[in-house]
Design a protein around this nucleic acid. Structure first.
Lengths: 232, 232
DNA sequence: GCGGGCATGTACCAGATGGTACATGTACCA
DNA sequence: TGGTACATGTACCATCTGGTACATGCCCGC
């Protein structure tokens, strides 16, 4: 009976709790149960693992996923690479988890963005844009495109990010646009276009850093598309 | 006097000649001249190197830059990793060269796209779009975003690609739009917007593969922006 | 026909990497 | 108080990586 039995059960449902410090143990559970084991069927909690994941995302947002090594990451987070393997099962699975979490955050971001019906669409659109282009998010945007690229490249670890990256945004956008009185088919096309604009401009600002110019281009888009909507 | 003196002079100006087979020697020149040397000041020609570079780009377009290893690449191209180091000086420099070449191709692509003045702008715009969205280019598009991501991530090797990715396209686009009678400032904003649309839709089609939907979204953009142009 | 320089192959190396083995610390529950 | 399961630290290892050393093939100009 070798091996110690370790966690990384990939249940990871956890209820928020961002902004954690690194781990430094205390409570929580996990349970790798590598080959045999598989006891303790519970879905207790997470905590060192959760903190590690958040810290990892923070680190990747800052430094990118490119030269990622378990040792380097661990050193930056104040752990040992042993712990990363312990909690996540390995490098690839860590990245999978990161991609999943990023996807989750994207979804949450959209939920928070407030498409409350009834608000002035002109206002709503611009407030949406303002929230998405918040400079605070820049590192995460970069990480988003980093993982996006990985997924495009075929990296299965980042694949999960790609799954809903277009469709998931299309649905609410289409709904919003249709609510402005635009016929269904046209609304769907407009939504796809709007998403492309958002992604394209995000790339632009990440590349050039010229926020003012990008803002102007966005404003042009809003103007163009509003002009096409039926008058309220 | 150790070392054999090898090429990778990074002159690489070469006059086209795409579609070469792998190398398999024959003529050409290069000349690494690592530490001392530096003799033969000429800018003779290229050929094994050129072929290697083209083949590398082909391979990267297919497999991405992610797990790239000199040995793996060399095996795929039918050479030894020794030769890649010989001709390019090392892995990083190879990637730099790839990025530079991709940037060159982008520029050429734009030049070929025919913004001949006098042609019907409605036609010109759509022909531009058709050329850029040619399915044959898909792998190269993917590689483009792959390198783009690397650059965003701070990889100095891919940095050269990033330098002009936005501005270089903005200039001719602005010119084209201004030629439709749009005032200068607005034309610049429209150009930036159009570029964002192009990049965003390209990402979309790479992700979803739904060419028809993307074409419809593009068409929506053309319609919107044309409606805003002064009548001919 | 021969010499020099480009091109290539073979062998090798030091370093880093992901992962494993094993010993141990620690908190909670019975 | 003792046990059980999670958490962590210390070594260690096989493998692979980029890069180097060195010998040699091969073409072209003299």
């Amino acid at each position: 009976m070798p091996a110690r039995a370790e966690p990384h059960r990939t249940d990871a449902r956890s209820t928020e709790a961002r902004r954690a410090g690194v781990p430094r143990a205390k409570a929580g559970r996990t349970g790798e149960t590598r080959r045999a084991g598989e006891k303790g069927a519970g879905a207790r909690r997470d905590s060192p693992r959760r903190a590690l994941l958040d810290a990892t995302i923070g680190h990747l947002a800052e430094h990118g996923t490119d030269g990622l090594t378990l040792r380097g990451l661990a050193a930056a987070l104040g752990t040992s690479h042993r712990m990363l393997i312990y909690h996540f099962g390995g490098k690839d699975q860590l990245l999978v988890e990161v991609a999943l979490e990023m996807e989750r955050r994207q979804r949450d971001a959209f939920a928070d963005i407030g498409l409350a019906p009834g608000t002035d669409p002109r206002r709503a659109m611009r407030s949406m844009y303002r929230q998405l282009s918040d400079p605070t998010l820049t590192p995460y945007m970069r990480l988003f495109f980093d993982l996006y690229g990985r997924g495009l490249r075929g990296d299965p670890a980042a694949g999960s990010l790609l799954d809903g990256v277009v469709e998931q945004w299309l649905a609410p956008l289409t709904e919003f646009i249709a609510a402005q009185g635009v016929p269904a088919g046209k609304a769907a096309d407009d939504a796809r276009l709007a998403l492309a604009v958002a992604r394209g401009l995000a790339l632009d600002v990440l590349t050039t850093g010229d926020r003012a110019a990008v803002d102007r281009a966005a404003e042009r888009f809003f103007t163009l598309i509003e002009a096409d909507w039926p008058p309220a």
